Amino acid sequence: MYKVYGDVISGNCYKVKLALHLLDKPYEWLPIDILKGETQSEEFLAKNPNGKIPVLELEDGTTLWESNAILNYLADGSDLLLSEPRLRTQVLQWQFFEQYSHEPYVAVARFIKLYQGMPAERQEEFELCQVRGHKAFKVMEQQLKRTPYLVGDQYSIADIALYAYTHVADEGGFDISGYPAINEWLARVASHPRHVTMRG
């Protein structure tokens, strides 16, 4: 059985949890408290020398880290990872977009507000995250006006990657009511029969 080291309200950890549920793969969840420095312990650093969650531990004791890399591993050979080379590359395209143009702003704003309680010294950074987060949402909105999922007609790990922080964007101070295609997509993703909520 897989072991997942993570924080239940972390979007990056939720990606792994959601994928495991969609793929109907059993796992054990091992909670890690990042605010208490548990990712910096000697034991944890032996699993991920980068000191971050999530970490997926395989049955042989080896570990994988970086949420989107874990998604690719779990989804390999399934319907969640498209096999046609051009479409598979588009999945990667959206995963890179999530890590460079979405997560650094949407997730960071949420961390500042939800985890840290909006400290005054991070207010300026929070405001910048709002601007750049909305830029990312506009890119997603354009695509989702054209296709039901981020890569055409099929739900994939590209959707999992971007759903994770988008569906809780309000916890980072974002109002996404002005993005109708994104909101329809959020409902579409959540309607999957094996969907599981972040805190569920």
Rank of each mutant, 00 (worst) to 15 (best):
N12E: 08
K15H: 10
K17F: 10
L20Q: 00
L20Y: 02
H21F: 10
H21W: 02
L23S: 04
K25F: 07
E28W: 00
L30P: 01
I32T: 04
I34G: 02
K36A: 15
G37S: 09
G37T: 07
Q40I: 00
Q40D: 06
A46I: 03
N48V: 07
G51R: 05
I53D: 03
I53R: 12
L58T: 04
L58F: 06
E59M: 09
E59W: 07
D60E: 05
E66C: 11
S67L: 09
A69N: 11
I70L: 02
N72W: 10
N72S: 13
D76K: 14
L80V: 07
L81W: 08
R88N: 12
Q90G: 00
Q90C: 05
Q90E: 12
Q90A: 06
F97V: 01
Q99H: 12
S101M: 07
V106P: 11
F111M: 06
Q116F: 11
G117N: 08
M118E: 15
E121L: 10
E121S: 06
E121P: 01
Q123W: 09
Q123R: 14
Q123L: 08
E127P: 00
L128E: 13
L128S: 13
C129Y: 03
R132M: 11
R132S: 08
G133L: 01
K138W: 03
K138Y: 05
M140S: 03
Q142A: 14
Q142K: 15
Q143D: 06
K145H: 09
R146F: 04
D153H: 13
Q154F: 05
Y155C: 03
I157M: 02
A158N: 08
I160M: 13
T166L: 02
H167Q: 07
A169L: 04
D170F: 15
E171W: 14
G173I: 04
D175A: 14
G178S: 12
G178D: 09
P180G: 03
N183S: 03
N183V: 01
V189A: 03
A190G: 02
R199P: 00
G200A: 03
G200K: 08
